[in-house]
Design a protein around this nucleic acid. Sequence first.
DNA 1: GACGAAACTTTTAGTGACTAAAACTATTAT
DNA 2: ATAATAGTTTTAGTCACTAAAAGTTTCGTC
Lengths: 212, 212
Amino acid sequence: MTAAVGLRERKKQQTREEIFEAARRLFGERGFDAVTVAEIARAADLSEVTVFNYFPTKEDLFYAGMQFFEEQLIEAVANRPRGEPAIKAFRRRVLAGAENLAGRGRAEAILKAGRIIAVSPSLVAREREIVDAYTRRLANVLAEETGASSEEVEPVAAAAAMMSTHRALVAYTRTRVLAGHRGARLVEDFRTQARRAFARLERGLGDYAVRA
Amino acid sequence: MTAAVGLRERKKQQTREEIFEAARRLFGERGFDAVTVAEIARAADLSEVTVFNYFPTKEDLFYAGMQFFEEQLIEAVANRPRGEPAIKAFRRRVLAGAENLAGRGRAEAILKAGRIIAVSPSLVAREREIVDAYTRRLANVLAEETGASSEEVEPVAAAAAMMSTHRALVAYTRTRVLAGHRGARLVEDFRTQARRAFARLERGLGDYAVRA
DNA sequence: GACGAAACTTTTAGTGACTAAAACTATTAT
DNA sequence: ATAATAGTTTTAGTCACTAAAAGTTTCGTC
């Protein structure tokens, strides 16, 4: 009499969520580094080992929930219409994401996450690692499409240029929110910066920062 | 009767070198992760705490010796002649570095360092951190020169594009050396890749990877 | 419903980077 | 010589993370 999905499976899912919830709460209260995995285990009423069983590193406990926008960026490029250069698709997806910045409580969420990450070296490191992984994936997509080998430098450089622009935009948004900007103003600034930076990459750096 | 430089100073310098030497030897023999700081301390005949006193993290013990080429890249850009765009100076410096690749034992050194780093997550992470720091510095230079604020996205994106290209070239070189290429052939390949990637950035991504 | 296999969880014991504080030793300036 | 200062060691501890062995729970089967 096995249900569509067994008890075991359901319990696991539940445990996973309990751990994650406990972690989320504690990180929110006291930041990342000030919370030990042992405490999270205690709060979720489990042994420490079990926590590591579900989340191999403490950092996973923080980033597990985040929907990686990066994933969608890769998809946007991979599924772009014929005749379109990769950067156009990338740029479009990034700009489409700008809408959300004006949403209810969005700024506060950005602020909170930003504060927690910025203060924790291990979270910052993890973020870099994630970006790196996505950059490699994007580079692979570009290499395949242009018929280059994945070792080649051109696709990696191009992928990194795009991803870095996105990361810089995220960082920019953080500082803007920190400076008190919200809503339409925030979205507008984001768009201006995005357009300018992408335009630069599209047009090339050949005439950028020419020494006076 | 204080000498030009005191005994204290000299001893510190010496201790530092002894620690570093011991570390270098052990890392070379057994890799990074398989060597503990306690072992390094023992080999240098010092207490573990003293090692941490000289090198705040184990990773510093590895990277301390490396002459950061990145430093010179920043300088090359900062001191470029009038009328020259930043990327030209950057590119020139990178290409100038290609000469060294043909040097005696150079390939073996690349291989050895590459092997040690690739296998150690913490060293890889540290490398990312270093690149990040230099990228920020380059971005600052660019921002200042173009009269942009250092928060802005354009200079950061441009800096990241250049630095990433350099990193990709380093990675490319590693794989080429691994594939057995040496000497003139290696230098040639490096140059081809560098020229192609930089040309792309100079000309822009506007017509790169246009979907068929 | 009993029962053994398989999946999970816990306990236990440990490794290793890194830190704070206090005691100790060497160098320096007076 | 001596006292201040800098550098080193000892000690004790925190915390992420791991391996292994001993439970405990769920599952399929009879």
